[in-house]
Structures are given as C-alpha cells and as structure tokens.
Design a protein around this nucleic acid. Structure first.
Lengths: 206, 206
DNA sequence: TAGATTGTTAATCGATTAACAATC
DNA sequence: TAGATTGTTAATCGATTAACAATC
C-alpha cells in the first residue's frame, strides 16, 4: 500500500478502469492483460501497469490480471466497496432527472435527501424521496451524516448554498452549476460542465 | 495566428477563461490582468499568459487586457461568435431537462432536433421542439446540416446510435452515456460522466 | 520448458513555473 | 518618468512511454 499521496490524475483514471473491468466481469471474462484493458479504454498498457503499481501488485507475470480480483481491489481503493448516501440540492428539471436516474443506485450511490426553496416543490415526492425546504437543510444533513452533495441550484445561489453544505458537514460536492466554488481546500469539488465541453468541441469544428 | 496544432489541454482551458471574463464584463470591469484572471479561476498568471500567447498578443504591458476585447477574441478562437444548432438524441428525464435548460440557448447553443424511439414520446413537444422517431433521424439530421449531437440514450444503444449520427454528418458528440464510444478519430467526443466523478471523490473520503 | 506478461527503472516527452527584457 | 504587466525564453517539474529483468 502506498504511503505518499497518489497523483490525482492517476486516481481519476481508476473509475474508468473499474468500469471496463465491470463490463468484462458481466461478459464472463475471467482474466485480462494490461494490453487488453488498455485497448478497451484507449490508454497504453504501460500506463495501466504503472498506475496500478501505485497501489500494489495485482497481476501475475505471464497470465495478467484476474478480472474479479482487480475489480475488488479497485472498489476497495476507491471506497466504493460500500454504499454512499447523497444529498440533492435543487429539484429543478436536472435535479429531478438525477433523482430518477437508476445509474447511481446501481453503483451504490443513493440519494436520501432532497432540498429546494420553491414552496410548490416542498413536500412533493420523487419516487420515495421527499423534497424538503432549504430552511431545514443544515439540520437534516448534519443529522444524517451525509458527506456528498449534488448541487443543481441556479447559478445565482450556488456559492451560498455550497457554503451551507460545508457547514452541514458535506465533504464532497458534485457541482452541476456553472460557478467556480470558493470553499475550504479540504472540500472536494468536481464540475459537470456541458457548456465548457461544447465550447471545447466547437474549437475543432472550424 | 498559430499554425501548429495547439495542445488540447490549452484549448480546454479557454472556455473557462471566457466564462470568467464574461462575468467581469457583466460586472462592468473594463480591464484585467493575468494575475487577476488567474485568481478568479485558480490558475497561475504565467499559465494564462502562456496559453493566450499561443493565439496572439491580446494584452498591453503595464495595463493588462481589455476584458471586452479578450472576450471577443476568445469567442472567435472557440468559434462561439456565432450560433450553433444541436440535435438531442434520447428524450428521457435527462434529455428533457437538457431540452428545457436555458443555459445552452443563452450561450448560442440551440437544440433544433430531438429524437426518441419511444412511440409514446414521438410527436410530443418540449417547448417548441417536436420529438421525432429514430427512423427519420438520419435523413432529418443530414438535411439540417447539424454538426453537434447530445447523446442521452440508454447505454445499450449508445454505440449504434452514435454510428448513425456519424453517418448523418455529425462531427461532435457530447456523450451523456457511460459508454466509451468507438468512432472515427476525426469525430470529437466529450464525456459527461457523473459516476466517474463520484468515484473519484470517494477515493478521498476514506 | 517456452511464451507471455508483469512491475519497475530509465528515457522521453510535454506541461507548468520562474524570470526578465520589452514596453505601455 | 516610474510602475506595472505583458510575451517569451529558460528552468523545473511531472507524466507518459519504452525497455527489460523477473517470473508465472
């Protein structure tokens, strides 16, 4: 097990390895190689071996990697060998779509709390998730102990809501708003930003 | 103007510069410096100057950059000094949310075609966007000349639909499915992958 | 055993940062 | 002018690739 901090860019590739291995597992593939895995993901075999070697020795010379074993190891490394609770803040079109999405639940991410400041929405349900008012947010999140939030509020309130989330004990935010959040550095923030990606692509469209 | 291909990692930062500058423009800020812009985005001043220098000389020693001028220049470089038409494929919860989202339209990205293979959805409207059946997709897209698609279909059909999109003349795909698309290399694909980002964050949550 | 593939070291490549002359 | 800040070159840093001994 590595002691030194692993480069973030390497950590960021592990979920992609895990996904490709999951597919192999579902297809009944028992063993793979860095070569084969690399081709599936579009990454060099050398890089995969180098990345994995940061965390331990998972393969066997001559035969490669047991898919099942590597899946287990990666799940443990990423801490997704358990279930995670999420809070959803902002129940607009996008928030509602996320609440209904089965892809999170299937992978162990379960939304257990949802908040909105629109009184028309408060009290309504999405599946068995009840929308609560923002006034009770800090207390509810603190009590629940949830550590991860998905932020789908209007841009204008993103920073303020994020600060309240941090006060409530949230440690990681998946930020769907187009706002650069200014938070204590120990809080992890990941950005989902389709507009930035569209503008990135149009560069190449001439 | 640069002749050699600009590193993709630099191109990917330009939309973020543009967004920060847009905010300055709206706030009436006339002039900025690489220092100030860097602080707003969390990037070093040196990197901003280096990045911009790939495309030209946009600043003045001693005074910095005209916000308005730099916005204009970046918009031209990214080809967002015009309007872009989009096609939406897959009108589920997420697709519907994207169709309703005003953040695209405001930035010159307008969904003009939407397709789904669910006969219950075909013929229905989202705003003034009419959902059409997948059987007419190739013809409609070809005729429209749209170059960018947003893909929000189930994972199981993602690859096949993407191939049809390419046949229809699509050159760039914003892929919301958790599927690694295998397409000709001249097709640009960007991935929106919340699960990968959640798993990236849980690594740090211990 | 012979062939295959790992984990790791060394070499290469590319990106970021630092420094500063040029100049507004 | 003096102060500020650019654009660019050189130095540093980090990430990727290549190569190969170890070994299953």
């Amino acid at each position: 097990m590595a002691k030194n901090p692993i480069p973030d860019i390497i950590v960021g590739r592990l979920p992609r390895y895990l996904r490709a291995l999951d597919i192999m597992l579902r297809n009944g593939i028992k063993t793979t190689s860095s070569q084969e895995l690399g081709e599936a993901i579009g990454i060099s075999a050398a890089q995969i071996r180098k990345d994995l070697s940061q965390f331990g020795e998972f393969g066997k010379q001559g035969t490669g990697y047991s898919v099942r074993y590597l899946v287990d190891q990666l799940q443990a490394i990423l801490h997704v060998d358990r279930s995670w609770d999420l809070v959803l803040v902002g129940v607009g079109d996008l928030g509602t779509a996320l609440a209904r999405y089965q892809g999170f639940v299937n992978r162990g991410f379960r939304i257990i709390l949802a908040f909105d400041n629109d009184t028309d929405k408060v009290g309504k349900s999405i599946g068995n998730l009840k929308v609560m008012g923002m006034d009770s947010m800090e207390e509810e999140i603190s009590r629940s102990g949830v550590k991860i939030a998905m932020l789908t509020v209007p841009a204008s309130s993103a920073q303020a809501v994020a600060e309240t989330l941090v006060k409530s004990g949230i440690k990681a935010i998946l930020n769907y708003t187009p706002v650069q959040l200014n938070l204590p550095e120990e809080i992890r923030v990941e950005y989902i930003d389709p507009l930035v990606k569209l503008q990135h692509m149009t560069y190449y469209l001439g």
